[in-house]
Amino acid sequence: MPFSKNLIIEGKHDRPILTDVFYDENSTRKPIVVFCHGYKGFKDWGAWDLMGKAFSEAGFLFIKFNFSHNGGTIKQPIDFPDLEAFGNNNYTKELDDLETIIDWVYDNTIFKTEGDLSNISLIGHSRGGGIVTIKAEEDNRIKKVISLAGVSSYGQRTSTTGDLDQWKKDGVKYVLNGRTKQQMPHFYQFYEDFIANEKRLTIKRAVTNLKIPYLIIHGEGDTSVLIKEACNLHKWNPKSQLEIIDGADHVFGAKHPWVENYIPHQLNEAIQIMVNFISASE
Rank of each mutant, 00 (worst) to 15 (best):
M1N: 10
S4D: 04
K5R: 15
K5D: 11
N6P: 11
I9P: 08
E10G: 04
G11S: 08
K12L: 10
H13P: 01
D14C: 00
P16H: 09
L18A: 04
T19F: 00
F22Y: 15
K30G: 02
P31R: 13
P31C: 07
F35D: 04
C36S: 15
H37Q: 09
H37I: 04
F42M: 07
K43D: 00
D44Y: 01
D44M: 03
W45F: 07
W45N: 07
W45R: 07
G46Q: 05
F60Q: 12
N66L: 03
K75S: 10
Q76F: 00
Q76R: 06
I78Y: 01
D79I: 03
D79L: 13
D79G: 00
P81Y: 03
F86S: 03
G87Y: 02
T92D: 05
T92V: 15
E99R: 13
E99G: 14
T100F: 00
I102G: 12
D107T: 13
D107L: 05
I110A: 13
G115I: 04
L117W: 06
L122E: 04
H125A: 03
H125P: 06
I131Q: 10
E138D: 08
I142M: 09
S147H: 05
G150A: 00
S153T: 11
G155N: 12
Q156I: 00
Q156L: 09
T160K: 14
T160N: 13
T161C: 01
T161S: 08
G162H: 07
D163K: 14
W167K: 13
K168V: 08
G171Q: 11
V172W: 05
T180S: 14
K181M: 11
M184F: 04
P185I: 08
F187Y: 15
F187R: 12
D193Y: 01
R200M: 05
T208I: 02
L210T: 09
K211R: 13
Y214H: 14
L215R: 11
L215H: 05
S224Q: 14
L226F: 11
E229Q: 15
A230S: 15
C231D: 06
K235L: 07
K239P: 02
K239M: 03
S240Y: 02
I245N: 10
D246K: 15
A248I: 09
V251N: 09
P257Q: 12
P257H: 07
W258H: 15
E260W: 01
P264C: 09
P264W: 03
Q266E: 14
I271G: 08
I273T: 14
V275H: 04
S281H: 12
E282F: 00
